[in-house]
Design a protein around this nucleic acid. Structure first.
Lengths: 154, 154
DNA sequence: CTGAAATAGTCAGTGCCCTGATTAATTGAC
DNA sequence: GTCAATTAATCAGGGCACTGACTATTTCAG
C-alpha cells in the first residue's frame, strides 16, 4: 500500500482544474470557439499584425500548436494570414470583421463564466488564488525558458 | 482596443499551470510515463482489481481517455486487463510486477518534482494554494456531474 | 421468460500540446 | 559575394481530453 494521495499533487489538481474549466467554457461560452482560440484572437485585438511565433509567445503555445489553432481560425474565416513583405519567413496575422465580432461577443460570456468558476471563493480568496497561480506558473515556465543565462559563475 | 487581460482569467492560468507541470514532469520524473498514466497506476496500487470506468472516476478521466491510457500501459506490460467472470461487460485491471516497481520508482521522483514546482510558495501559501485549487476544481466538477438532483423544490 | 433500460467498453471525429526533423528565408562572418 | 548560422513555419508522430454513435452484456419490469 504505497499509494500516494493525488489531492496533494499540484499537477494533478492543475489537470482537474483545467478539465473543469474546459467543460464550463463549453457550456457557458462557446461550443465552436475554444479557450486557446479565444486567447489567440484576444492577442490580435491587443496587437494587430503580429506574426505566428509572437502570438504563440503571448498566449503560451509552442510553434506547432499555434500553427494548428491558427489554421482552424483561418479556415473559419475569423483570421487572415499574409506573408510579411519585409520578411518572407513570417506570416502576419489579423482578425477579420467576423473575428472581431466573435471576440467581442465571447468577451462578455467569458466574464460571466469566470464569475461562476470563481464563485466558491470570496473576493479576497480570488485575489490570493490569482497571485499564487501566477507565481507558480511563471516560475515553472522560467525553468523551461531559462532567459538570459547569466554568465557562468564559479 | 477591447482586449482582455488573460492573467485575470483563471482558465488561462490553469492551462499555463498545467503546461508548466507537463514540462517539469517530463524533465524531472519520466519521459516515458506521463502524469495521467502514473495517476492510473496509483489508483490500482490503492485499490487493486478496479474496473476501467471506476479507475477513470478515481483519477478524473472520461471513458474514452481512460481506455487509451490503459491500452498504452497494457502494451508496455505495466498493467493487466481481464474480463470480470462475474460481469462480462467489465475488465478488471491490475498492475504487473514491472508496473508496481515503476510506480514505486516514480513516487520518489514526483515528490521531488512537487517540491520544485511549489518552491516559489511558502509552506503556508502552499496549504492555501491546495485548498483554493481543490475548492474551485471540485465546485466546477460538481456543476458537470450534478450528483443526486435533490427533489425539485418550488 | 422476454423485451426494454441501463451499463461497460469501443470507435470515429475534433482539438490541444509537445518534441524532433525538415524546408525556406534571412542574417552575418569572412 | 558566398557559405554557415539563425529564424519562421511545417510535418510526422505520440499522448491527453471530450462528444456522440455503436456493441455487448446485464438487469429489471411485466
Amino acid at each position: 500500500m504505497a499509494a500516494v494521495d493525488l489531492t496533494t499533487h499540484p499537477g494533478h489538481l492543475a489537470r482537474r482544474l483545467q478539465q473543469a474549466h474546459y467543460l464550463l467554457w463549453n457550456s457557458m461560452v462557446s461550443e465552436e470557439i475554444t479557450s486557446p482560440q479565444f486567447a489567440v484572437m484576444n492577442a490580435l485585438v491587443a496587437e494587430p499584425g503580429l506574426d505566428q511565433r509572437t502570438v504563440g509567445e503571448r498566449v503560451g503555445l509552442d510553434r506547432s500548436t499555434i500553427a494548428e489553432v491558427i489554421s482552424r481560425l483561418t479556415r473559419r474565416g475569423l483570421l487572415t494570414k499574409a506573408r510579411d513583405p519585409q520578411d518572407g519567413r513570417r506570416f502576419l496575422l489579423g482578425l477579420t470583421d467576423d473575428g472581431l465580432r466573435t471576440h467581442r461577443r465571447l468577451t462578455v460570456r467569458t466574464a460571466r463564466m469566470n464569475q461562476v468558476f470563481l464563485a466558491p471563493l470570496s473576493a479576497e480568496e480570488q485575489t490570493v488564488f490569482f497571485d499564487l497561480l501566477r507565481r507558480v506558473a511563471d516560475a515553472a515556465e522560467a525553468l523551461r525558458h531559462p532567459a538570459e543565462p547569466v554568465a557562468a559563475q564559479g
